[in-house]
């Protein structure tokens, strides 16, 4: 059984961050690029998925291209002692695709909880936000809705070591 060296792991990351080859044996193609057996590539990917280093492996969809044209980042200013509980509640909500805690940057940026809502149009997204506020009792939580109006770039994260 071949275990990839650290350097080979970096090379594999670089090779897959823009996607797997769309050829009959993509792992063999990657393996020959690294000069390792196909099994070693498959094993490494299994390991990364198991560790949660890779969250999922498959088709990465552009929401906008499949008709989800309204993309709102909704940000909330939640008291620090409530933010984790609210984040856990929000992630259960079907309208929400991503939910993160991030630092406030006062005085410019008071918001510490971020969630993404993708919808077919803005009216529907506003309705979903209103429903969320009612269901989770967020009437007194300051929030802002930031719709995206242009996408300049959307690719995978670049984690391979450079330089």
């Amino acid at each position: 059984m071949t275990i990839l060296t650290q350097q080979q792991q970096e090379s594999l990351k670089a090779a897959i961050q823009d996607g797997l080859p769309l050829t009959a044996r993509p792992y063999a193609t990657l393996a020959s690029g690294l000069g390792v057996p196909e099994d070693a590539v498959i094993l490494q990917l299994e390991q990364w998925l198991q560790d949660g280093y890779i969250k999922r492996l498959g088709l990465v969809v552009r929401h906008h291209a499949v008709g989800y044209r309204a993309n709102a980042m909704v940000v909330w200013n939640v008291p620090d002692d409530q933010v984790d509980a609210l984040g856990e509640e929000m992630r259960q909500h079907p309208a929400i695709t991503l939910c993160y805690r991030r630092p406030r940057r006062l005085p410019d940026w008071p918001y510490n909880l971020f969630c993404m809502i993708h919808g077919k149009d803005r009216t529907l997204v506003h309705q979903q936000i209103e429903a969320l506020i009612q269901q989770l009792g967020l009437q007194n939580i300051q929030h802002a809705v930031l719709f995206s109006n242009r996408q300049f770039k959307q690719t995978g994260g670049r984690y391979a070591r450079v330089g």
Binding site: K13, I16, Q17, D18, G19, L20, L22, L45, W48, D51, G52, Y53, I54, K55, R56, L57, G58, L59, V60, V61, R62, A65, V66, Q154, T155, G156, G157, Y159
Partner: peptide
Amino acid sequence: REQKIITRVGPVFDHHKA
């Protein structure tokens, strides 16, 4: 992929772990 409906068939890395 050509129609840009997907960006790729590949991994989504965990930002923190990767």
